[in-house]
Write a protein that binds this DNA or RNA. Structure first.
Lengths: 200, 200
DNA sequence: GTATTTGGATACCAATGAGTATCTGAATAC
DNA sequence: GTATTCAGATACTCATTGGTATCCAAATAC
């Protein structure tokens, strides 16, 4: 039943398991309300495994931040403005109800707070956000150059909408109808809706 | 030197002092990394004062959230679209460098996370965000009714920009030029800048 | 003035959690 | 096959912290 694994494989597997458990628990309960024992237990291990693979709690958090930085996003294509917005909207609406999305958002906020306070982790946080922004900017540039704002600024604004609408939606779903995000994206990209009214 | 205070006054004063200290420490170090001893000490008191005035740590947090809910914002006037945007932009740019602003933002995020996880505090968090949104909506309505989106949605989007740009700026000031927020607001309100380029 | 209430201080407790020291069994080296 | 290494388990420690019990002195009641 149990596969025979080489040492390096075994090690890598436990590292990833620990990081997975940590990310989930950090999102659920918060970084400082999560003990190393809990993280290890959730991964089917003990605290010994944590100290065998990480320098301590802070180091584990750093590794988590780093792992997020490392997994690269899918490559953008070259769609029309309209279809890109539709894709974005669909993706937003299909992601919103998934528990995974909530977890990701909570973990993001946890890591943001942690990075804001810990000088040593600040850099990783900054790089991560830059990478996401850069990814958005590339997508925006692929849309053409007749947009109202420079791609870099548009990217920052799109990300702001994502974060800001997300926070509000999570707190109070009814207060932020699903199409609000889409309307915001359209406005930022300079798209005028046909007719003054608000369809859909 | 010391004023003679009635009991109720004394009590109210210590309550406010404790809340002030708590808010500052929560912003600086985080809710769960701040002990009641630290809060009390920062207010020149001891833990006894906390338990004499609050049910416990959670209750103190609830009171903090409640106090935020209670202090009402200044009343909006009825300016032109352009002047309102300028006011908003000026206010943004003058607030951004103030340490107070950072503290408020960090405290907000702390309270948001706490409220998201604690069912009992969720309501206060929701009400608080609703109040801010409603305030924005009133301002937006005062601008007239020829805006691209309904006031309620515009309000949510403006708040999203505020939060989202703020988070990014705090992490990486150079990455988000000051005018980005203003450009975003203009876009949401349907203002076209004269000339396709980006002046200032 | 005396009695009583009570805001707040002090001393304590039990629980928790990060970090350490030590040990063990399986994987590698030879 | 034997020796060695090392990932991970186990069993501590020591500091911290929320909460409680008790006490005191100033403010109120009469």
């Amino acid at each position: 039943m149990t596969e025979r694994l080489t040492r390096a494989q075994q090690r890598e597997r436990t590292v990833q398991r620990l990081l997975d458990s940590a990310e989930e628990l950090f999102a659920e309960r918060g970084i400082h309300q999560t003990s190393l024992d809990q993280i290890a237990a959730a991964a089917g291990l003990t605290k010994g495994a944590v100290y065998a693979n990480f320098g301590g709690k802070k180091d584990l958090i750093a590794a988590l931040l780093q792992r997020k930085l490392d997994d690269d996003e899918p490559v953008p294509e070259r769609p029309s403005l309209r279809s890109w917005i539709d894709t974005l909207a669909d993706s937003y609406e299909s992601n919103v109800p998934r528990p995974e999305t909530r977890r990701f958002a909570m973990a993001f906020v946890e890591l943001w707070l942690f990075g804001m306070r810990d000088e040593g982790h600040r850099g990783a946080l900054r790089d991560w956000l830059r990478a996401v922004r850069e990814h958005h900017a590339r997508e925006v540039r692929a849309l053409g150059d007749d947009l109202p704002l420079p791609a870099a600024e548009t990217a920052a604004l799109l990300m702001a909408l994502d974060i800001g609408i997300g926070l509000q939606f999570m707190t109070d779903p009814e207060a932020v109808p699903a199409h609000t995000y889409t309307r915001g994206v359209e406005a930022l990209l300079g798209v005028r809706r046909a007719g003054g009214s608000v369809p859909r």
